[in-house]
């Protein structure tokens, strides 16, 4: 009978270590998400302005993010910046920078498309009723934009959480790396640990991401 290698999880504090590892990647994504939401709102609003310079810059920025794999960006920030500029950025900070860089782009694009999806006559009617620009935004545009935006933004959040699994590749000791360490330290006593440990990591990610995407689906249904 082959064992499924789940026993290693109950040795010492291994399960806690895995969870702590998961927290490392979650923490990176949470910080990046906070930055992305905040800056994304600002940049997204900027994008709807008719200024040609802003348009050009944001367009180029979006294209870079769209084309470059996050892993490449991670390598450039983690190894490249030290080589190029002499900045020594630690792996977790590099990850936050890269995921924010990516998140702000995606978020601002969502904000922009939600904003322009509001028909022009809504603005015009608001002005005709004598509302100021600020009033128009606060009580007419933002509430409508919000409903379109939130489900999409939550979707982006799960994508960011999933993508933070890449930080292992630049040496952050997160859940997958801890998993490898556990497999290595128990190679002799429990040769099938790879199955149990990777399955556990897989399920852990699912437990984190699934409720969030369910929530976003629900909101989308409710508000559409």
């Amino acid at each position: 009978m082959t064992s499924l290698g789940l026993d290693v999880l109950f040795k010492g504090i291994n399960m806690q270590r895995l969870l702590a590892g998961l927290w490392v990647s979650l923490r990176i994504s949470l910080i990046a998400i906070a930055i992305s939401i905040f800056l994304g709102l600002v940049v997204g609003w900027l994008m709807t302005r008719k200024n040609i310079v802003i348009k050009a810059i944001t367009r180029v920025y979006l294209e870079i993010v769209r084309i470059m794999p996050q892993m490449v960006l991670l390598f450039i920030v983690f190894f490249g910046t030290t080589r190029l500029f002499g900045w020594n950025i630690d792996a977790e900070v590099s990850s936050v920078i890269v995921f924010s860089f990516w998140g702000v782009a995606e978020m601002s694009d969502l904000v922009r498309s939600s904003l322009i999806s509001i028909p022009k006559h809504q603005y015009e009617s608001a002005y005709a009723l004598g509302m100021s620009e600020v009033q128009t935004y606060l009580s007419v545009i933002i509430p409508q934009t919000f409903r379109r935006l939130v489900p999409l933004a939550i979707n982006l959040i799960t994508r960011m959480i999933k993508t933070t699994s890449l930080v292992m590749m630049i040496g952050v000791v997160e859940v997958l790396k801890v998993g490898q360490q556990i497999i290595e330290a128990n190679r002799k006593s429990s040769p099938n640990a790879a199955f149990g440990v990777y399955l556990t990591v897989f399920i852990l990610y699912f437990i984190v991401c699934w409720p969030i995407s369910m929530f976003s689906k629900k909101l989308e249904k409710k508000w559409s």
Partner: peptide, 23 residues
């Protein structure tokens, strides 16, 4: 739901390193 809510990296690790353990 399973594959949309887990990272590819983890999926690959499981497929490549985990599955051989059960043959």
């Amino acid at each position: 739901e399973l594959f949309r809510n887990t990272p590819l990296l983890i999926q690959l690790f499981f497929l490549y390193f985990g599955l051989p353990k059960i043959g």
